[in-house]
Design a protein around this nucleic acid. Structure first.
Length: 558
RNA sequence: GGGCUUGUGGCUUAGCCAGGAUAUAGCGUCGGGCUUCUAACCCGAAUGUCGGGGGUUCGAAUCCCUCCAGGCCCGCCA
C-alpha cells in the first residue's frame, strides 16, 4: 500500500501546486510522508513558507482524493499521516502468501556473480560477491522478473595453467573426504611457490596456454578435469550457502565457437585499434582511459578481456538486462568493457561493484595460501550456533539442534555480509561474524520464531477472527513498517543495493520485538486479541518473505 | 604520479546519488527488566567539530572546490 499512497500523495501535491517536483521526503517521527514544497514556493509567492504550508494543507485536505490521509502543517512542513484504511489494507495484503511479489514482467535479467577462478576454495572475499549476487537474483525474482544466475568459469587462463601444471607434475593424492577445491588449491599454491624459486618453469605455463588455445586434446582434458574438480567443490560451498547458479559458462566456449574472433573483427573496424605484430589493443584514451586495452597477445593467443566481450554479447542476445557483480579491483576493466561494447554499438552490462574484504593482517591471496575459506567460516559459525542452541534448547534432539544451528550459521554469514553497503571496504572480524545478537540474522530469525510460536499457541487455543482495527502505537508502528516491504524490494532492484533489504528487515524485527514486549497478544481480549493476532500473522509472513529474499531460512522454532 | 572510492560517538554502521524538522542503529560502558505469548529479547543513560577548510543555498552529513588520511586500480594476469 505504501507505494500506492506515495503516488497518491504526489499526485495530490502536483495538482495543487502545479509543480512537477513536490519535494517529498520521509516523514520520520512526524508522519508517514512529508513535503518541503512550501520552501520552493516562497520564490514565486513571496510569502513565509509556514504560511504557504498552512494554505496548502487547507486546499489539500478539502480534496476528495485526500480521504484517508491526515494532512497537517508543522511550520513549513506538510505532513501526511495515512489512516486506518491504509493500515488495514496493508496488513491484509501482508498476510497473503505472495506478499511483496511485484507484478510479473517479461524483460529477462541475467545476473552473473561469484565467477571466482577455479584455482581454490571460495574465501571470505569471494562470498561478498556471492551474497550480493544471490540476494539480487532473489530480489529480482521476487520483483517479478525472469532471472538467470550465471557463473563465468575461467577454464583456460594463466592461473588455470598453473593449476594444470601442478596437477600434471605434483601427483598429489586426494585425501579422504577432501573437497575438490581444497585438493586443487594445494597444487596451485605449491606450483606458484615452485615458479617463484625456479622461474625457468614459466615457459611451461606459456606453452600449456598455447596448447589449450589450439585445442590440444590432452591439454584440454587436463585443464578441464582440474577445473571441474575445483568447481565441484565450489558448488558444494555455494549450495551450503543456499546459492544455486542456473548456468556455469566456460570461457573456452567463446574462443572455440568463433564468437571471440567475431567481436575482435568488429573492433578491428574501430579507428582507435592498434597492432604491434600479432598484438592488438584498443586506445581508449579518447574515453578517458590511460592504458592500452589489450585484446590479443603478441604470441597470437587470446586474453581474458576479448573472451569477456564475446561472453557479454552472448548474454545480451538472451536477456534484456545484463548485470555483473564484480569486486572493486575490476572497476577499470569493467569500465573498459562497457566502453568498448558501446563503441561497437552494443548494450553494456550494468555492473555492481563491491569493495574489498581483507583480513586484519592484510589482504587475502589464493596464490599465497593466505585466506579464510567460506567453508571454514561456515563451519566455525555452525559450531558456535550449536553451542548457543544447546544452551537455550537442551530439550531438543541433536538432530533438531543441528538443523537449527546450520540455518542460524548460514543466515549469520549471509546477513553479516549483505548488511554492509557494497561501497564500503571491510576487515573480516571473527568476533563480529560469530555475534548472534542484534543486527544479525539470528536476531531476525528469532523474531520470526516468536511470531510463529504465538500463531501456534493461538491455533491451539481455538484460533482467531481476522480483525484490522489498530490504535496502539506499537501496533501502528509495526503495521506501517510491514506496509513498506514491496517498496523496499522495488528500491533494491532499481538501485541494485541489496543492503537496503537487510536494513529493512532488521528494523522490522526491532519493531516486532518492541511490540512483543509491550502489546500482549494472547492475553488480550476480544477485538484487540484478534487484531494483534492478525498483525502477528502479517509480520510473520513479511519476515518470512524478506528472509527468503535474503536467502536466509525463516526458522519456526529456535 | 594519474584514476576510482571510502572517511559519521571508543569500535562497527544507516542516511549521501534525487539538500530540509532534534543525524540511524548495533557493539562496548553504566543502570534496570525473566511467577507474564521463546531474555538469540526489552527499557533507560552517557558518548558526535558527520576527516579539515572554503563555497553554493532561506537551509549542507547530503551538492561544488580544495586539502588530509585509508582502500583499490593503472599487467601481452584474471
Amino acid at each position: 500500500m505504501y507505494r500506492e499512497y506515495i503516488q497518491k500523495t504526489i499526485d495530490l501535491l502536483r495538482e495543487v501546486t502545479g509543480l512537477e517536483d513536490v519535494m517529498i521526503t520521509d516523514g520520520g517521527d512526524h508522519a508517514d510522508l512529508a513535503s518541503t514544497v512550501s520552501f520552493a514556493l516562497t520564490k514565486t509567492q513571496r510569502k513565509n513558507p509556514a504560511v504557504i504550508a498552512g494554505e496548502l494543507v487547507a486546499v489539500l485536505s478539502a480534496k476528495p482524493e485526500a480521504k484517508g490521509i491526515e494532512i497537517s502543517a508543522k511550520g513549513p512542513y506538510i505532513n501526511f499521516i495515512f489512516g486506518g484504511d491504509y493500515v488495514a489494507e496493508s496488513v491484509r495484503a501482508a498476510r497473503r502468501d505472495d506478499y511483496g511479489t511485484l507484478p510479473a514482467r517479461t524483460d529477462k535479467v541475467i545476473i552473473e556473480h561469484t565467477s571466482a577462478n577455479p584455482n581454490g576454495p571460495l574465501h571470505v572475499g569471494h562470498i561478498r560477491n556471492t551474497v550480493i549476487g544471490d540476494t539480487l537474483v532473489r530480489a529480482f525474482r521476487k520483483a517479478g522478473y525472469p532471472v538467470e544466475a550465471q557463473y563465468y568459469l575461467n577454464d583456460m587462463g594463466r592461473q588455470i595453467a598453473i593449476v594444470a601444471w601442478g596437477v600434471k607434475n605434483l601427483h598429489y593424492d586426494r585425501l579422504p573426504g577432501e573437497k575438490g577445491d581444497e585438493y586443487i588449491v594445494r597444487h596451485y599454491v605449491e606450483a606458484n611457490r615452485i615458479a617463484k624459486t625456479k622461474p625457468e618453469i614459466e615457459p611451461e605455463f606459456d606453452s600449456m596456454m598455447e596448447k589449450i588455445e589450439a585445442g590440444d586434446p590432452e591439454t584440454v582434458k587436463l585443464f578441464h578435469d582440474s577445473v571441474d574438480i575445483c568447481a565441484d567443490g565450489i558448488k558444494e560451498t555455494l549450495s551450503s550457502m543456499n546459492v544455486v547458479h542456473d548456468k556455469f559458462v566456460r570461457e573456452t566456449t567463446f574462443l572455440w565457437n568463433g564468437s571471440m574472433q567475431d567481436v575482435l573483427n568488429r573492433i578491428e573496424k574501430l579507428p582507435t585499434v592498434h597492432h604491434e605484430g600479432q598484438m592488438m589493443y584498443l586506445d581508449l584514451s579518447g574515453e578517458g582511459f590511460g592504458n592500452r586495452y589489450v585484446l590479443r597477445r603478441s604470441n597470437g593467443t587470446s586474453v581474458y578481456a576479448a573472451r569477456d566481450l564475446a561472453f557479454h554479447l552472448w548474454k545480451n542476445a538472451q536477456c534484456d538486462r545484463s548485470i555483473d557483480v564484480l569486486g572493486a579491483d575490476h572497476k577499470l576493466i569493467g569500465a573498459q568493457l562497457q566502453t568498448t561494447l558501446k563503441l561497437i554499438g552494443e548494450r553494456p552490462p550494468e555492473i555492481v561493484h563491491f569493495e574489498f574484504v581483507s583480513l586484519p593482517e592484510g589482504s587475502m591471496t589464493t596464490r599465497g595460501g593466505v585466506f579464510i575459506t567460506a567453508d571454514e567460516l561456515i563451519a566455525e559459525t555452525k559450531k558456535r550456533a550449536m553451542e548457543e542452541v544447546t544452551v537455550r534448547r537442551p530439550e531438543l534432539s541433536e538432530e533438531e539442534r543441528t538443523k537449527i544451528a546450520a540455518a542460524v550459521a548460514v543466515g549469520a554469514v549471509r546477513y553479516d555480509i549483505v548488511k554492509v553497503s557494497a561501497e564500503k571496504s571491510t576487515v573480516f572480524d571473527w568476533k563480529e561474524a560469530l555475534d548472534f545478537e542484534r543486527q544479525s540474522a539470528p536476531y531476525i530469525q528469532y523474531a520470526h520464531a516468536r511470531a510463529c510460536s504465538i500463531m501456534e499457541k493461538a491455533k491451539a487455543e481455538g484460533g482467531f477472527a481476522e480483525c484490522y482495527e489498530y490504535s496502539d502505537p506499537y501496533e501502528l508502528a509495526l503495521a506501517k513498517h510491514i506496509a513498506r516491504f514491496p517498496y523496499v524490494l522495488e528500491k533494491v532492484v532499481v538501485e541494485l543495493r541489496p543492503h537496503l533489504l537487510a536494513t529493512y528487515v532488521r528494523d522490522l524485527a526491532d519493531l516486532f520485538n518492541s511490540f512483543y514486549r509491550f502489546a500482549p497478544v494472547l492475553k488480550a481480549e476480544g477485538n484487540v486479541r484478534d487484531a494483534r493476532l492478525t498483525l502477528v500473522d502479517a509480520c510473520r509472513n513479511t519476515l518470512y518473505q524478506a528472509l527468503g529474499v535474503l536467502g536466509i531460512e525463516a526458522l519456526e522454532s529456535m
